[in-house]
Simulated scan of single mutants.
Amino acid sequence: MFEIQFNYRAVKFMNPTYLRQIHASQIFHALRAHPNISQRELGVLTGCDKSTVSVIIKRFETMGLVERTQGQPRGTRGRPQESLRISMSSGFLLGVHLEFEQLVLVLATLDGQPLDSWQGPLPVEPAALSPLLTEGIAALMQGQPQPAAEIRSVGVCLPGLVKMGGGLVYSPNLDWRDVNMAELLAPHLSVPVQADNDTNAATLAEHLFGDCAGIDDFLLIQGGSGVGGGLFMDGRVYRGKSGFAGELGHQKVIANGRPCNCGAMGCLSAYLSPGVLVERAGYCAPGIASLADVQAAADAGDREIQGLLDESGGYVGLVLSNLINALNPPAVVLSGTLAQLWPWLEPGVRRSLNENALPAMLSQVNIIISRLSTASVPSGGVALALEGFTSLDASETLFG
């Protein structure tokens, strides 16, 4: 369950409104993760007292966020158990993904369940994003019973360096520099906009919707247009001082190795980015033009391609070993193209881990192959939108 972390010793000195907002966020996420839960069970799950739960649920009902249902009695006698869940008519979340070749919008319910998606051309210039976004939202809302005004929060996933507050510093894939997403989209959207690096968003999505629900500390390495990473620590995405933390694809695997698009040499991304991997595979087996071709060749038993993927897995294992030795995480998630190629990467990854990671730490790590990242609809944007909606600093507070 997504949890709001705070210092309990400071509670007695905390602003009461801020404390209520913390409890409201905890209760909202408990409802999201455990639909049809009773009010009493909410108190047990969140640790909030009975009166706090009651006041916050009444606030949610006033906002139209929750609905009550009558379930079956929990025994042979007694009245039916009244349950609570996030209302399906409480509004929408919108995820925006600027992917390598296309713009993808995902419309979801307020609890993060995807309803529909829309694809359009990737804008060449930042100024072209807003008109495309307006077009996509109009198309998505045609099949919905509520208007676009019911979109409560928007999350934007960006492939590049994103600073605190959502400002894009630089994206080599988009060739965009110094773009403030919130300012760019504010004239066209009347709701909060949360923008972040796409891998940070994927990391958050794994915790909210994926196999890391309930895990408060884990690492993620994702293959996409490049290789990115995310650090989830103490129940939240760790973004560092300025928002740039988690660039795990730029960990060095070979001194003075292949040039990377970041300007350095020998980065993991210089060996495992899909485009680079296809290029390297083409030297082994002429005619390979896509990642699907690489997989097909490996499946067909091409020894050179299998060797290339085994070597690549060794590089992933080396990066993971350094991170495991430094951070002692209980779980590591491999996502995106790394999840797709896992059957062929796994031998090299595990061999490198056994050679380089400290045994005491390695024995405590669970390697998770992301199922969420291979779904047909991306979830990172919706995760950012949900984080923004339940944030303690959201403009429309859950309890103010």
Rank of each mutant, 00 (worst) to 15 (best):
G64N: 02
L65K: 00
L65H: 00
V66D: 00
E67K: 04
T69Y: 02
Q70R: 04
G71S: 00
G71Q: 03
Q72L: 10
P73Q: 02
R74I: 02
G75D: 01
R77H: 00
R77E: 01
R77M: 00
R77K: 11
G78E: 00
Q81R: 13
Q81F: 01
E82V: 01
L84D: 04
L84K: 03
R85L: 13
I86V: 14
I86T: 07
S87R: 09
M88Y: 10
S89Y: 13
G91Y: 02
F92H: 09
L93N: 06
V96F: 11
V96T: 11
H97M: 11
L98H: 04
E99T: 13
F100R: 15
F100A: 15
Q102K: 15
L103R: 04
V106F: 04
L107P: 08
A108M: 08
A108I: 08
T109S: 14
T109C: 10
D111L: 07
Q113F: 14
L115F: 09
L115R: 05
S117D: 15
S117T: 15
S117N: 15
Q119L: 11
G120I: 12
P121C: 07
P121L: 12
P123T: 04
E125D: 12
P126L: 07
A127G: 06
A128W: 03
A128I: 04
T134C: 11
E135L: 14
E135I: 09
E135A: 15
G136S: 08
A138W: 06
A138L: 07
A138Y: 05
L140D: 03
M141P: 03
M141D: 05
Q142R: 08
G143M: 05
G143H: 13
